[in-house]
């Protein structure tokens, strides 16, 4: 019996040293058992490697930056949809999620499905709101404050000790060991991602991550914990291993059932010296290391697509422990004609 064919648009094709999840998500979708796929790439810059991976992406289109506003994004997606008849979009960048969420109903009316967190979930879990989030759902989080000017850094030492982590609203985090560093990171990060800047107490310990999928009704469809084994100078996992930790799985179930989380997510946890897990960050999307979850038996992108299409999805209950992912870089040879095409007409 031939499987049905689903057209899925995926962003985050920047498989670089601080990678977007797009290429990993696409690999997972290509291995889906319940459907065949046509993959449409959505790119922002002409050198995103995924654009040139014709073996896994059928066609790529440039889309406008989130700063251009939802009207621009909508008109571009209408154009792409008129050619490709998209069934599902999986947006993978933090910075673009808000725009896609705003357009969810509009896309739905066009026949395009997504499976994203609600705006309320998205706002509530935001770095900026993490302290209240922790209080509300009884999850331990490191002490943090939002600041709007470098002046405020000097008032922080009543509550904080160095080192402190200086975080951008969307991306970027740096560890500051003194005022001068804190100020310089504040300026650097706020110039790029705006205000406020989140200052978080640095928690000493070991970092763990867990990726999962919530069905929007409080059920955890998938959850795979991972311990980073090799971290790049940008703080990204270059290698990791699936682990068995009941405490982490329980925490994930609690997170999903309490928030009724809808969509993919990644929890960044720090196991402190007191053996407790602290929640550092909730990423409201699939992480770049998602292929490990597929490799250990939980195809999260496949389940997400089925949920988006309104199918009934059974939760995964097990996964292989002790499987590793080791990331590698790969040089593609690309003709300048292709670069020319994506740069000048925005399609390839």
């Amino acid at each position: 019996m031939s499987k049905r064919k689903v057209t899925i648009a995926v962003s985050g094709l920047n498989a670089i040293d601080s990678p977007g999840p797009g290429v990993a998500v696409i690999r997972a979708l290509r291995e889906a058992k319940s459907f065949d796929v046509k993959i449409i790439g959505l790119s922002y810059e002409s050198l995103e490697p995924g654009i040139y991976m014709h073996n896994i992406i059928d066609k790529t289109y440039h889309i406008p930056y989130p700063t251009a506003g939802t009207d621009s994004l909508l008109s571009r997606m209408e154009y792409i949809h008129s050619i490709e008849k998209i069934d599902v979009i999986i947006p993978n960048f933090d910075a673009e999620l808000y725009s896609f969420m705003k357009l969810e109903d509009t896309f739905k009316a066009m026949g395009i499905h997504m499976f994203l967190p609600t705006l309320k979930q998205f706002e509530e879990r935001h770095k900026v709101n993490l302290p209240e989030f922790g209080k509300k759902y009884d999850i331990k989080v490191p002490f943090s404050r939002n600041i709007f000017s470098t002046q405020e850094i000097f008032t922080l030492t009543d509550d904080f000790e160095f080192p402190m982590v200086i975080k951008g609203k969307y991306y970027d985090a740096s560890i500051a060991y003194n005022f001068e560093q804190a100020k310089s990171y504040f300026n650097k990060i706020s110039a790029k991602w705006g205000l406020p800047i989140v200052v978080q107490q640095f928690v000493h310990g070991t970092e763990y991550n867990i990726t999962g999928l919530g069905d929007g009704n409080g059920n955890t469809i998938a959850a795979v914990p991972m311990r980073k084994q090799y971290i790049t100078d940008k703080g990204k996992a270059w290698g990791g291993i699936s682990i068995e930790d009941k405490k982490m799985i329980d925490l994930t179930h609690k997170f999903v059932s309490q928030t009724k989380w809808r969509g993919g997510f990644e929890l960044e946890l720090m196991k402190g010296q007191d053996n407790e897990f602290y929640l550092l960050e909730i990423n409201p999307r699939i992480p770049a290391w998602i292929y490990l979850a597929v490799g250990v038996g939980q195809n999260i992108p496949e389940s997400l697509v089925n949920l988006a299409l309104g199918e009934k999805v059974e939760p995964y209950t097990s996964y292989d422990v002790g499987k590793m992912f080791i990331r590698y870089a790969w040089d593609m040879i690309v003709d300048i004609e292709e670069f020319q095409q994506i740069s000048t007409i925005g399609e390839l």
């Binding site: 300048i336 670069f339 020319q340 740069s343 000048t344």
Partner: peptide, 17 residues
């Protein structure tokens, strides 16, 4: 120079539009 206005300078590897 291509019809689409893409310019490639093979001497230094730069591209322009």
């Amino acid at each position: 120079i291509s019809d689409t206005g893409f310019v490639f300078n093979p001497l230094n590897g730069e591209s322009y539009s």
